[in-house]
Design a protein around this nucleic acid. Structure first.
Length: 512
RNA sequence: GGUCCGUUCGUCUAGGGGUUAGGACACCAGAUUUUCAUUCUGGUAACACGGGUUCGAUUCCCGUACGGACUACCA
């Protein structure tokens, strides 16, 4: 079997879509599994769509999710350069060879002429107005013009494109690793532009030339390329590279969560979840898009989630590290149908990965959040907080967001809980409890609980009946982690202070 | 419109000529938790439709419907 060499070949036109990340991931898994090479090629042949910073964004995104590039932009390699704009002469060379061998031709038609042709065909009731084996006979190209005319036009620097001369009747077949044999009749393919008038190649030519030159063994890309894949097969044939043609695998698309259609930035904005790996601000429009990283997703969780959108191991195991994915991944087990993007599942993966971390590691997240608030916290306390919060967090920031009350006294109290649980009995118990706690020499969760039970017993009130009121006074809310541990963490003085404050605030309210 | 691709619970999917059609997420209920969450147990829920082929089809074939991609001097 030949060396596995795969490539991820995005164009730097903006932030890297999450579907692109999945494509990169599948390529990477295949490469690693076979001791192969993962190549990053930048397809920047459309100068009008170039967006500054996009290439850097791609590099950073791949790095963040843990996809390491062996060869390509950013790292170099034996087939450098890996940016197509820097490989420009290469494509013209091959296009010229295609012309010489009669498989391509110059076309001098202006945009207006092309438009007129389409109009004419439409008026004549042609389904598919295209530049093809029939229509090219009526156009201005090196097939209809004399050799001298062509030469003259070329010498006069007339703008031209180079088109592939697609045969009129030929069955083009390709064996896709995911879909099996796909057959398309050449009459359905138009004479695709290979070289644009600005001297840059189109995707079709550049892609085939580079894949060949870089000895790519497998082309794993999105399903949107399937319709043009037969064209690429034709190119391999005309260039004489049929034997070296890579194997194709066209991945099912990532669909929007509701309804149908390709997942887009719009969906993400509307439904409030990210669709890009990292935060991104478009330099042209200043539009902001949020990233998985900044939203609190862990790279391992994202990778696991993404891997399962279109692939599964055939077992019931769902949690896979990158190494495990590398071991188990097979192209054969990639599904054919598009997968809807379900952010719930992504969150679940995140939760799993977050919980699997050690308490020590989790305190780092807490410290990071606290630092942004200008709060410092001893590690001993951080460990306690993490241990009581661990089972309730989905994102690293939750330690702070759901545990603010461990640092900040409540300024307001949940009204529905207050209405339900804040009664004379509770006031009586809390007043007494506050006094008892104030007298304590030592204070921790166990003592706090014992003291509470003592107080309730002496007043003849069930502990359960006033516990919610106590929680409300301490945290301001009706739900949260173990209350006794919360009190231990904030300490005796704070407990006394908070109960006192609640007693004042809520008394005022109830008497009004 | 045309070409190509696709269609198993709400979602991701396993399976495959004879199965109680399996798992996970989500959802619902019960238990535990003095609350919420966690955890545990249980539950609702799917082979798009119509024809074949076959003793038998969700599985194979053909249609239909529906969905998607593509249909640029964009990738």
């Amino acid at each position: 079997m030949r060396d596995v060499r795969v490539r991820f070949a995005p164009s730097p036109t903006g932030a890297l879509h999450i579907g692109g990340v999945r494509t990169a991931l599948y390529n990477y898994l295949l490469a690693r599994q076979n001791n192969g090479t993962m190549i990053l090629r930048i397809e920047d042949t459309d100068q009008t769509r170039f967006v500054p910073g996009a290439e850097d964004y791609i590099l950073k995104s791949l790095e963040w999710v843990g996809i390491k590039i062996d060869e390509g932009v950013g790292v170099g390699g034996p087939h450098a350069p890996y940016r197509q704009s820097e490989r420009k002469p290469l494509y013209m060379e091959h296009a010229l060879r295609l012309i010489q061998e009669g498989n391509a031709y110059y076309a001098f038609d202006t945009e207006q002429e092309l438009e007129a042709m389409r109009e004419r065909l439409k008026a004549a009731g042609v389904d598919l107005p295209q530049y093809n084996s029939i229509t090219r006979a009526q156009m201005r190209n090196s097939l209809t013009l004399s050799e001298a005319e062509v030469k003259a036009l070329l010498q006069a620097n007339t703008p031209y494109v180079i088109r592939l001369k697609v045969p009129r009747k030929e069955e083009v077949r390709l064996n896709d690793m995911i879909r099996g044999w796909v057959m398309v009749h050449s009459s359905q393919i138009d004479d695709k532009v290979l070289m644009k008038s600005d001297g840059m190649p189109t995707y079709h030519l550049a892609n085939v030339v580079d894949d060949y030159l870089m000895k790519i063994s497998h082309v794993i890309r999105g399903e949107e390329w399937l319709p043009s894949a037969p064209l690429h097969v034709l190119l391999y044939k005309y260039l004489g590279w049929e034997k070296e043609m890579p194997q194709f695998a066209h991945l099912p698309l990532l669909l929007k969560p509701t309804g149908d259609g390709k997942l887009s930035k719009r969906d993400a904005d509307q439904m409030g979840f990210p669709i890009f790996p990292l935060d991104w601000v478009d330099p042209n429009t200043n539009e902001k898009a949020s990233g998985f990283r900044e939203s609190g997703y862990l790279p391992d969780a994202l990778v696991n989630f993404l891997a399962f959108l279109g692939w599964n191991p055939g077992t019931t195991q769902e949690l896979f590290s990158m190494d495990e994915l590398i071991k188990e991944f097979t192209v054969e087990r990639i599904g054919k149908a598009g997968a809807k993007f379900d952010i719930h599942k992504a969150k679940w993966f995140n939760q799993q990965y977050l919980r699997a971390k050690s308490d020590e590691a989790l305190t780092e997240y807490l410290h990071a959040s606290l630092a942004m608030e200008g709060i410092t916290c001893p590690q001993e306390k951080a460990l306690k907080i993490v241990s009581i919060m661990k089972e309730r967090v989905t994102f690293p920031k939750d330690f702070w967001e759901q545990g603010k009350f461990l640092f900040l006294s409540p300024t307001a109290f949940d009204e529905t809980v207050a209405a339900k649980k804040w009664n004379d009995e509770a006031v009586k118990v809390l007043t007494a409890y506050k006094e008892e706690v104030a007298k304590l020499a030592q204070f921790d969760a166990v003592i706090a609980k014992a003291t509470l039970e003592q107080v309730t017993a002496s007043l003849g009130v069930g502990t359960g009946k006033i516990l919610q009121a106590l929680r409300l006074s301490i945290t301001g809310a009706g739900a949260g982690p173990d209350l006794m541990m919360i009190m231990e963490i904030i300490g005796k003085d704070e407990v006394v202070k908070r109960i006192g404050f609640a007693l004042e605030q809520l008394k005022v309210k109830s008497s009004v």
